[in-house]
Simulated scan of single mutants.
Amino acid sequence: MPRPQKCRKVCCLPQNSGFTPINGKELTAIVLTVDEYEAIRLIDKEGFSQEECGSYMRVARTTVQQIYATARKKMADALVDGLPLKIEGGNYRLCDGQEAYCGCGGCRKHRHRCGMQGQEENL
């Protein structure tokens, strides 16, 4: 029996839940999970190493490597084949903003970016 999956910590949900090609073909969308999106965001946009990403998402570096590889494959398929891409589902939990450092620039910045002003704490 395989081990149960750990929930992956995610800073906040993506602002866009999908993308469609300009040609707008009516084809089945490729589904990128929220945790795959978060791995792409942390590694490619924020510049985290896979080890830092794993520490932030609270999973092993090897797990991040697998999530990241799957996400890149899905994105490549969507781009090359002109398929719609939807971001939904996955095994994740949202950051509650209570940590001293949430991995995306600090909880103060996290709360500001995610629209939770007024809940600032003294850091």
Rank of each mutant, 00 (worst) to 15 (best):
S17P: 09
P21T: 11
P21D: 11
P21G: 07
I22C: 11
N23Q: 14
G24H: 14
K25Q: 11
E26Q: 08
E26H: 09
E26F: 12
E26W: 09
L27Y: 08
L27P: 01
T28E: 15
A29R: 03
I30H: 03
L32H: 01
T33M: 04
T33V: 05
T33S: 10
T33E: 04
V34D: 00
V34Q: 01
D35E: 14
A39V: 09
I40A: 00
I40F: 00
R41A: 09
I43D: 00
D44R: 03
D44N: 06
E46T: 10
G47E: 08
F48N: 12
F48H: 15
S49A: 10
Q50N: 08
E51V: 07
E51Y: 07
E52I: 04
C53D: 00
C53T: 13
C53H: 00
C53P: 01
C53V: 05
G54K: 01
G54E: 03
S55L: 07
S55F: 03
S55N: 10
Y56F: 04
Y56M: 10
M57E: 00
R58I: 07
R58Q: 15
V59C: 13
A60R: 13
R61H: 11
R61V: 12
T62A: 14
T62G: 15
T63M: 11
V64I: 15
V64E: 00
Q65T: 13
Q65P: 03
Q65I: 08
Q66S: 13
Q66E: 09
I67V: 15
Y68K: 12
Y68V: 13
T70V: 05
T70N: 11
T70L: 12
A71D: 05
A71T: 07
R72S: 04
R72W: 03
K73M: 10
D77V: 09
L79M: 13
V80E: 15
V80K: 13
D81V: 05
D81R: 14
D81F: 10
G82H: 12
G82N: 13
G82W: 03
L83Y: 05
P84H: 01
P84Q: 01
L85M: 08
L85S: 02
L85V: 02
K86G: 00
I87G: 00
I87M: 01
E88H: 04
E88G: 02
G90R: 06
G90V: 07
G90M: 04
Y92H: 12
R93F: 15
L94V: 15
C95N: 02
D96Q: 05
D96A: 05
G97M: 02
G97W: 01
Q98W: 04
E99T: 09
A100Q: 10
Y101L: 06
Y101P: 03
C102A: 05
C102H: 01
C102T: 08
G103H: 04
C104A: 11
C104Q: 06
G105F: 06
R108T: 11
R108H: 05
K109R: 14
H110I: 03
R111G: 01
R111P: 00
R111M: 06
R113D: 10
C114Q: 02
M116D: 02
M116I: 04
M116F: 03
M116S: 04
Q119G: 08
E120P: 12
E120F: 08
E121M: 14
E121N: 12
N122I: 15
L123Y: 14
L123I: 12
L123K: 15
L123S: 12
